[in-house]
Design a protein around this nucleic acid. Structure first.
Lengths: 149, 149
DNA sequence: CGCATAGAGGACCGTACTGGTCCTGTATGA
DNA sequence: TCATACAGGACCAGTACGGTCCTCTATGCG
């Protein structure tokens, strides 16, 4: 189904909520705000912190705050942070040994353009583009431009 | 990891091999040609037949043949045939009830542009684009155009 | 100074999905 | 008439993911 992991979905939700909370909030607070279980929210935030998308401060009155505004965060970055590198198949970047039929594989290493296309498509969309209303965006988003082809 | 199913990978391999065999071959024949186990090849071909990407003829001397040349088959079609609709998350096309936090979800239904972007990116690449050499394509592929943005 | 809060970083387990095989039925050519 | 090959399932095992929990560290407040 070409599915994205739920964690990545949660990450987007949490980050969006984080900005709505003024750019800073705690994991328990975000849990009640989003309806996502607290341990899960914490897990997502910890992952995002490792990717430097948020910064966590410990102690009482601690919490997480956004490093960049959502409009400066492409979803590709979130996906990479949570799900790892974007690669549709194992046969990427000339990886050797990942596929047992390397010798006979007729599409050897040719998924790369596909991966690149998806990467660039995801890089063109920022988290701000996923936010609620934005009914009539003044400037047509790159998404629309891509879809129009 | 945003992974594609192996079956879809196999499908591309099998279809490519099918064209190299003159557009027609049997499942056992494709199995030995690709190195993929015969039951798996059969499964993939059955799926592709349901999607009208190949046509199977029964009986001795039977087999499968391509309906369209590879250059007329976007990979998106193969992926949809094997893996189902391309949708990164459950919250697609305004599906209701799929997400238990619909009420509070701040990105409700906003993954759609992402899905569209990926769909269009995958639609712009045909199976012919994945074939072996094609080192210096005369006409820059749409993939390159997308990546250049 | 001590305690409550909150993040960091793991380990851990159940489930659901995928990959892969196999079985039965049907069609067709030699 | 039989061997071949597709059609359409059911079926099983391995794995990866989602989700929870535990321990440790840091920090603000009473």
């Amino acid at each position: 189904m070409l599915r994205l992991s739920k964690l990545a979905d949660y990450a987007v939700v949490v980050l969006t909520r984080l900005e709505e909370s003024g750019g800073a909030a705690s994991a328990p607070g975000l849990s009640v705000a989003t309806g996502i279980a607290e341990p899960t929210v914490a897990k997502v935030l910890k992952t995002l912190a490792q990717a430097n998308l948020v910064i966590g401060t410990r102690g009482a009155q601690g919490g997480y705050r956004l490093v960049r505004p959502l409009c400066a965060v492409p979803i590709s970055e979130v996906i990479v942070a949570v799900d790892g590198p974007i690669a549709l198949t194992a046969c990427v970047d000339g990886a050797v040994g990942a596929c047992d039929a390397e010798a006979t594989c007729p599409v050897r290493g040719r998924w790369d353009p596909v991966n690149d296309a998806i990467r660039s498509a995801l890089s063109a969309i920022t988290l701000a583009d996923l936010k609620r209303p934005a009914r009539q965006p003044k400037t047509p988003s790159p998404v629309a431009a891509l879809a129009a082809e």
